[in-house]
């Protein structure tokens, strides 16, 4: 009867929220309790039952006394410890709880929040959301994958110097599609392992849409290289656009797969992009021989329909080429 009356009398504004969190502070369970005394432990009498074997059956209790919550450790074997931003980690017994304190007991952690704990402002749906929803639609996904397959098949066909039939193209093409599908599948797996929603379809849809955009940017890069003389900046600009595409893909992958702050997401996406482009540049650089007896030139040629730029005259070409003599001569004088 006494307990009942206590419950009735309990001031709802003093309700307490106890969160079970993982070691890296990810939320596992959340309890909201409106009672002045809470028992935490491994046996089934407790208000919060924890399965951790390092926790005692009757590990600790917290009580509301004079408007304050106080921890009592019931002589547990492994002890209870308090951790917060203000103080060093110390024993939790007789500690007066502050909003946001984390109690470590056994190998588990509990975060205590008061009901007046302020929350982050609401995040509006980003415009990407509708794009992602479009791309994860089975029809859109089918369309992207089909387009990718067709392009991959065409690239294989165009670069094979001998006559090829359909089945000879099919195997490498399917291999390539599966190979590229590994990336979104991998991201989905990692986000699943991190207790996030896997969202495989969204990852696949976005990734293949971007892979197709990258084919397109490759084509643009080819056309611009073909149509410009050496030293032109247009191919460089197009190359930046492909770096931007890659960054966007990684950004969206992490947007779909992981909850993280906007700043962190940009850093993650930028790092993976850097790793990819910087890494491939490093590999090229380390494979570079000390002296290359072969000339390194751009041999990009395309069929006449892609020829957009006007041609220069022989005079102009000879004039431009003549500057190379001074450049190499300077190089020769360097010891």
């Amino acid at each position: 009867m006494e307990i009942k009356s206590l419950k009735v009398d309990f001031d709802e504004t003093k309700a307490i929220i106890i969160e079970e969190i993982s070691r890296n502070h990810k939320l596992l369970h959340r309890h909201r309790l409106s009672q002045p005394q809470i028992h935490i432990g491994r046996d089934y009498h407790n208000d919060i039952i924890l399965a951790d074997p390092h926790i005692c059956p009757n590990h600790l209790s917290i009580q509301l006394l004079d408007e304050q919550w106080k921890i009592t450790d019931n002589q547990s074997i492994n002890g209870s410890f308090i951790e917060n931003i203000k103080e060093k980690k110390h024993a939790a017994d007789q500690h007066i709880i502050n909003d946001g304190d984390v109690i470590t007991l056994g190998k588990s952690q509990l975060r205590i929040l008061f009901s007046d704990h302020s929350v982050e402002p609401t995040v509006a749906f980003s415009p990407f959301e509708s794009f992602i929803n479009l791309m994860r639609h089975p029809m859109a996904l089918l369309l992207s994958v089909t387009l990718f397959t067709l392009i991959a098949g065409a690239v294989f066909y165009l670069n094979t110097p001998t006559e090829v039939n359909f089945s000879q193209l099919l195997v490498p093409t399917i291999g390539m599609v599966l190979g590229f599908a590994l990336w979104p599948a991998g991201v989905a797996l990692v986000s699943h392992l991190n207790k996030h929603d896997a969202r495989v379809m969204a990852q696949l849809g976005i990734s293949f849409a971007f892979f197709n955009l990258m084919w397109f940017s490759d084509l643009l890069e080819g056309i611009s290289t073909f149509n410009s003389a050496s030293g032109s900046i247009i191919p460089l600009l197009v190359m930046f656009s492909s770096i931007a595409l890659t960054f966007s893909l990684f950004w969206l992958n992490s947007y779909i797969g992981f909850h993280m702050s906007a700043r962190r997401r940009i850093i993650v996406a930028a790092s993976i992009t850097m790793l990819l482009f910087g890494g491939s540049y490093l590999i090229q650089y380390s494979n570079k021989p000390e002296f290359n007896p072969r000339p390194q030139y751009d041999a990009t040629i395309m069929m006449p329909s892609f020829l957009l730029a006007p041609s220069t005259s022989v005079d102009e070409f000879i004039k431009e080429s003549s500057t190379l003599f001074d450049k190499t001569k300077k190089e020769a004088l360097k010891k």
């Binding site: 003389a229 002296f291 000339p295 730029a309 041609s311 005259s313 022989v314 190499t328 190089e331 020769a332």
Partner: peptide
Amino acid sequence: VTEYQCHHDLVMPDNQAITNKSIFCTRAY
């Protein structure tokens, strides 16, 4: 010798009988 340095461009001679992608490279002794 030094390594080669190259220049390339689209070139049409004055007779307008052909359009080429031409590449010229040189290295110094």
